[in-house]
Design a protein around this nucleic acid. Structure first.
Lengths: 155, 155
DNA sequence: AAAATACTTTAGTGATTTTGTCAAGTATTA
DNA sequence: TAATACTTGACAAAATCACTAAAGTATTTT
């Protein structure tokens, strides 16, 4: 349940790949496609969306590619996903575009909204820089278990 | 993004409807269908799944219907959803049935797992009793805003 | 016993969404 | 001016969703 589409997943991975590159040297789309094992054509769609959203910039011509518009610490995972998949909306009645008639009386509505807010908070807290740091730690330690716990205070 | 299917939503609403009834008197499927505006046939599928999972019991014959197998405080929303939609699996590589080849080295994998755990924790904390209490408060106060904040400590 | 009520199970189906591919561009620079 | 790289829009196969339909089985009241 609550699965993310591949578009969102690839988008985050692509942004991560760009973040890993030299801020001065653009990362080209073929490199990303290769490293993340996604087709160039599909990636073009995704990067296009992200570019229009202002998260990345494209540089044309030989040696061109994509660079981040902001530093990794300023780009939250939530921003990336929002552009590619729209806002978190556990149910259709929470989608700003659709709306709900029984907001006032519906208890489950409150539940879904509360969950949605929690997810949103989480995703807006984690940035590309966090991912970069995680990877650095991962390479050092070679263990995955303890690291994921550094995010948030799972009681 | 991260939308729940109607099956899960209807399931929770149906369980809530049963929880609202007298623990001794079964709630019949037609009543639930009417109150929640879902077709009887579709609801049958859903309740069947929940019955096989042991969350509810069915009582046949005239005057029959469904009752909870446990008290509302013992039934978490997460349990209901798990039966109807499977475990939280933000990405396919986190699905126990599918698996992932690059677990060790993939940073985003950690991110999705961490998010999934947070969602799971939340859903396992909220029970049907909480929903019953919420509704009671809702009827009193007539306001929705403050109530949802009582769930979890949104920093 | 028979009829009414109510749950049970399995198939099937149209609509929608997802996950891409394809083709034909436009822009920039070596 | 050729090569590289990004840009855009249309389209389509596959999967999933959200049901409907139909034929049962079980229980109780009369």
């Amino acid at each position: 349940m609550l699965r993310l589409s591949t578009k969102g997943q690839y988008g985050v991975r692509a942004m991560f790949e760009i973040a890993k590159g030299d801020p001065e040297k653009p990362t080209n789309i073929r490199q990303i496609a290769e490293r993340q094992d996604v087709s160039v054509a599909y990636l073009e769609q995704i990067l296009n969306t992200l570019r229009r959203a202002g998260l990345i910039q494209s540089i044309k011509g030989p040696g061109g590619g994509y660079i981040l518009s902001k530093t990794p610490s300023e780009i939250a995972i939530g921003e990336i996903l929002k552009e590619l998949e729209g806002p978190v909306a556990i149910t259709s009645c929470l989608d700003p575009e659709e709306g709900c008639s029984r907001v006032e009386t519906c208890v489950t509505h409150l539940l879904w909204r509360s969950l949605g807010e929690k997810i949103q908070d989480f995703l807006n807290t984690i940035t590309l820089e966090d991912l970069l740091n995680e990877e650095a730690l991962l390479k050092e330690a070679g263990t995955t278990r303890t690291i994921s716990l550094t995010w948030g205070t799972t009681g």
